[in-house]
Structures are given as C-alpha cells and as structure tokens.
Design a protein around this nucleic acid. Structure first.
Lengths: 349, 349
DNA sequence: TTGTAAGCGTTATCAG
DNA sequence: CTGATAACGCTTACAA
C-alpha cells in the first residue's frame, strides 16, 4: 500500500541501499543519483516507515506518559497543562508522545508501564505526580528506563532521580503567612491525599507558619481532599460546620479551592469578605474564579517542557548533569483572600 | 538488553518458532513444551517487542490524536475530557494513543498528521473539533486512513465521514429560549471563531429563537471569541459597554462564559441578577462557577469513548455501519441565568 | 509436534 | 560511488 524504498528502487533501477543513502543525504552518492532519487521519492509520495526505523534503530523517539486514572482524576487541568508542555517540547525535538490510560487499580497501572517500557514502545517516561514509595519509580529504575518526574520522592525517601518540583512547603507557608498577616487565626487546611509525595511538605509549611506566628496548631482544622472540586466542597463544608470559628481555608489544589468557595457560599458566607480561600497550582482558570483565586503558582507548562528536554538529553547522551530542581513557590494574591472579616475569629489590628 | 524469543529458544533448546507459538497459545504445541516455554519466559521476564510485532503485522494498534496548538489552545478542558474518553476506550481494546503537538501554523499541523499516518505509526485518527473545509479531513480521506471526528462538517459540506456531534443549533436555541422566557430581550451572543464547523449552527439557533419569539435580530449583539476565558472577557466587556441595554449573554464555550462573568462583575453588575450568562460544553468546573453556570451539556467523555470504539471497529472490520450521530442538546439550568433583573431591558410580565 | 525460511521496511557493514 | 547481505524481533506458511 504505502510507498517503500523498494518501490523507489524499482522505479529508478538503483538498489534499496542506494536509495536509503541518497535520501539520508549521505555524501557517498553521486549528486545526479541523489537528485533523481529525491525526485522519484517526492513524486511517489514516499514517507519513511517509522516503525521499521524504530525496529532497526532499537530506538523509538517516543516518550511515554500515563494518564491519571478515571475516578481519581487527579487535577485534570494540571495534567493537561503538563501534557502540553511535554508534547510541545517533544515535538520540537522530533519525538512523539505515547499516552496510555491507567485503568483502575495499581495492578493495571503497572501493566501500562510494563507494556510501554518492556514492550519497547518508548525510550523514556515522563512521570506525573510522584507518590510516596512510588512503585512506578521502583519499576523504572529496575528496568533501566530513563525517566523524569514532576514532583520528588516522599519524605525520607531518596529523590535520586531526575525531577522538578516546586517548593511545596514554602508555597503553603507563604499562603498561611499571608492569611495570618491579614488577621486570620483560625485557618483550615485541605491537604491532598496521604499518598502524594508532596502532602507532608505542604502540611509542614502550614505548621511552620503557625508556629512562627505563635499560633496554635490544631489537627482538627486539617483534613484531606481528593484534589477535585467535589472533594474541596465536602472538606470545606465539614470543616466550616464543625468549626464555625474558621475564617480562612487553604485548599491544596485550585480545583478543591473552587469547591471550597462554593461551600462557603452555600453556607451563606462570602468568599474574601467572610472567609478567605486560597488554592494551589494557579491553573489558567484560577484568575477567572469569582472572586479571583489567591493561589500558589506552579509553572506547569514549563515544568513539562523542561522535564522533557532533560529526558531527551538523557536518552540521547548519557552524560547530562542530574536534574534535581526545586523551583521557588510564588503566591499570587488575588481577591479570594482579600477583604477582612470583622468576625470574632479575627485579630484586632 | 531486553529478553527476546531468541533468548528463550536458547534456554529451552526449542526453535524460535515453537517459542512464538507456545506463547501465543497455539494448539499445535505439546502441553509439556508450552508449559516449559511459559515458565522460562516468565522467569526471564520476557515481554514481546511491540515494535517488531507492529512491523510484521503491518498494524500498530495505535490511534493518533493531534493536540490543539499552543496559542489557540482550544478549550483545554474540552480537550482533556475528550482525551480521557479516547484513552480509556482505547486501552480497553488494547490500543495505545499517540499524541502529537501541532506546532504553529497549518503547514506544521498537516505535517503532524502526515508523520503519524504516512509514517505508519497509527492505524487511525481521532480528530477533535472539525473546522470548515478542514484540510485534515481531506488529507485523511485521500490517504485512506480510518478516522472519526468530534463535530461534523461545516454548513453545506458533506459530512460523509464517521462523526459524533451534538445538536449545536438546538443547544443555543434552547439557551436563547430560556433567556427569553426569563424576560430577556436584549441578548448578546459570543460565537466561536468563524472557521469552526459548528459556528454557523449555533448562530442559527440564536436567530431562530429570536424569530420565534418575535424579537428582532441585531448583528451588533453578535461577536466572536477565541473560546478561552480571555476572549470571553473581552467580547462581553465590549458588548456590554457598547450596548448597555444588554441583559443576557450567551457564550459559546464555558471557558468564555467564565471570562464573560468576570467582565460582568468588573462592570459592577451581578451575574444572574443583573446580567444572565450561559455557556456551552458543561465542563466539570461549570457547576463550581460562582454562580454555577447555566450551560449546554456535551457528554464529552462519552463522545471520546464512542468515537474510539467506532474507530477501532472500523480498523478491525471494514463493515460497520456508518457513524453519523447528532446527540440531542440539553440545557442545564443553574444560577448564572436565574434571578430576574428589573432593568429597563426587560419585558413586563 | 517441531523446525526452516521468508518477510515486514529500514539501516549498517563490507565488498566491489 | 554502488550493491549484496545481514540484522532488528516477530509471525506465518510450508516442510519435515
């Protein structure tokens, strides 16, 4: 069906070998031949068969990325931003990206990786959102497959692999300090699920800020959400009804913050004026929230790009210096945290 | 490096062929042999080389999907929902999904397709968001590559290819009728860019609803946006400052609706009470907007799934009945359109 | 029941 | 400068 080297060979009378070299621009083909071969190739609409090339080169020029699974859809928006970065950087280096859905459960998740890596379909993997004791990382190391991770290992684990993360602790700490500076003393915290690698760091940032301000740390004010709006809604609702003194809520993803803001409204309070809400990620929609969301910025697209560039360098040349980047966190202050409440939960100024 | 059939052959003493057949579960291998081969394969950690299989089978079990390009990031959220649907359905059928960034400009866009299809990397393509006179569709037809499209051809063009779309005209018509029923007479419309295939239909839905209600149609109230929040903001802002009589705005994507709502607020009005706003798509965040967004629902995830299932059927068996699905549109009424204004722009009731 | 041989489309090695 | 030949890892007639 498709035009192959053999077809061009037939049309020109040259051997397949010569065709291959002429097209590759090798110097040891006569200009006349090269010229002719190119013309015929164009005319026939020749397109090299990439699969055959992959087999022969034992390299695929393809990067793998496993999509987060359906139910636990981890921050869709975060993910698609990351994918954009990865995809753009990959295509600039002439690489393709193979995505694979991870179907429910850890067993299947690993199967997706085994298929990609063990099946020789990819030269490297971009791993989104490291978890604690991440089995995927263990596998990739054991398999000797190059990979790069957004996020680092959990507390106490060695992060001895290429990764980019932002300073999670500093991020939440800044958010907390910001709220404290505005006079808030009773601040709820909605953490990501336990198993995420960065959860402990964010928790710590919250604790530090409170301690430094001389405010008490209460476990009751801390809960977990599934990173999605629904989880944020529930967590915030629970928190606020159980502890009416709370005047501020820190949600550890923008999506949860959206849910939290809705909970605030449903409970008859106003975001910003009565209850301050902050998020994490700074997804594109954050600034279009109502009120616009105060949040910790993550350069997601750029992280995807850089991870990819590094990964490709790693694949093509073993000797690159290790990537261990912890980007500074930047709090973007918008209106969801502004406008002081005058309730009993606030400090006098 | 990786374990191949040859390795198992060496370890067991059988020929490569026998190994291959034993592993494939062919009936013409003795149970004992099969048993032994399987054991050794397991023990060695054999994983079939998928690339080699692809080459030999002349099939890749891979579907291609080109991501919308960077600047004109068409409704990120729509896209990632679709990708989820495609990806899940694909992996259930043991297919992979190859994504490719379309770098700037139409030339490069086509290059991405040529690479995937011509290079033999995929067996079929999922096309997101058909455009008018879509060059991609023309190419795929010419190349004889199976494909399935979300959205159909433009007005007057034949939609003689597998596609799923929703009833765009009915969708906007319902939204318009809803607003009219609430008493609105001066309704702004923010359309998608001209080149989108469905733009004309949505425009028509708006016109029909007005006509049926005996309301005048004014071109001035109609404008275009880039489908992103920023575009919605600008369009709404322009519309409202130029025509203060406007009391309702229909945005043709939820993302634009988010922007439009912000414009309303910036102009000192309240969404729902002063100015009604409706969107299109019903992305997951729509219900978490403030106020929750009235919008036309699209089952994006399911569309992705169905397109994929159909495409795979098409690839594996040429004889499937053509897919020409136009799903009914469903308006989801939430608060962004509720709460009647008492301004001069409204009908008495 | 098992093995030999050919082929998928490409590139690399090595003669001529 | 050009052309056989082999190889990448797998499947599948066809023989034995």
């Amino acid at each position: 069906m498709a035009v192959t080297l053999k077809d061009i060979a037939k049309h020109t009378g040259f051997s397949i070998t010569t065709i291959s070299r002429a097209l590759a621009g090798y110097s040891d083909v006569s200009p006349a031949t090269r010229q002719q071969v190119r013309e015929v190739a164009d005319q026939l609409g020749y397109q090299p068969n990439l699969v055959a090339r992959q087999l022969q080169a034992q390299r695929t020029r393809t990067l793998g990325m496993v999509l987060p699974d359906r139910d636990r859809t981890v921050a869709t928006d975060f993910f698609s931003e990351l994918l954009r970065g990865v995809s753009d950087a990959a295509s600039q280096a002439d690489y393709d990206v193979l995505t694979s859905a991870q179907v429910y459960g850890t067993e299947d998740e690993m199967r997706a990786y085994r298929r990609m890596v063990g099946g020789g379909r990819v030269d490297g993997i971009i791993l989104a959102r490291a978890r604690r004791h991440d089995p995927r990382i263990a596998y990739l190391k054991a398999a000797g497959c190059p990979f790069a991770v957004s996020g680092r290992g959990g507390e106490g684990e060695p992060s001895d692999f290429p990764h980019i993360d932002i300073d999670n602790q500093a991020g939440v700490q800044q958010a907390t300090e910001h709220l404290i500076a505005l006079g808030h003393q009773y601040i709820g915290l909605i953490l990501p699920p336990e198993e995420m690698a960065y959860t402990a760091d964010r928790h710590e940032g919250y604790r530090c800020a409170l301690a430094q301000a001389g405010l008490p740390y209460r476990t009751d004010y801390v809960t977990h959400g599934d990173l999605l709006p629904g989880g944020g809604y529930q967590a915030a609702h629970t928190l606020m009804t159980a502890y009416p003194t709370i005047t501020a809520i820190i949600a550890c993803s923008d999506l949860m913050a959206f849910g939290a803001m809705q909970a605030v409204q449903v409970l008859g309070k106003r975001v910003g004026r009565d209850i301050a809400v902050t998020g994490f990620d700074d997804i594109p929609l954050a600034q279009y929230a109502n009120p616009p969301l105060t949040t910790v910025h993550q350069p997601i697209y750029e992280i995807g790009q850089q991870l990819t560039q590094h990964l490709i360098a790693l694949i093509e040349d073993e000797t690159v210096e290790p990537l261990r980047a912890i980007l500074p966190a930047a709090l973007i202050v918008r209106e969801s945290s502004q406008g002081r409440a005058e309730g009993q939960g606030l400090r006098a100024e």
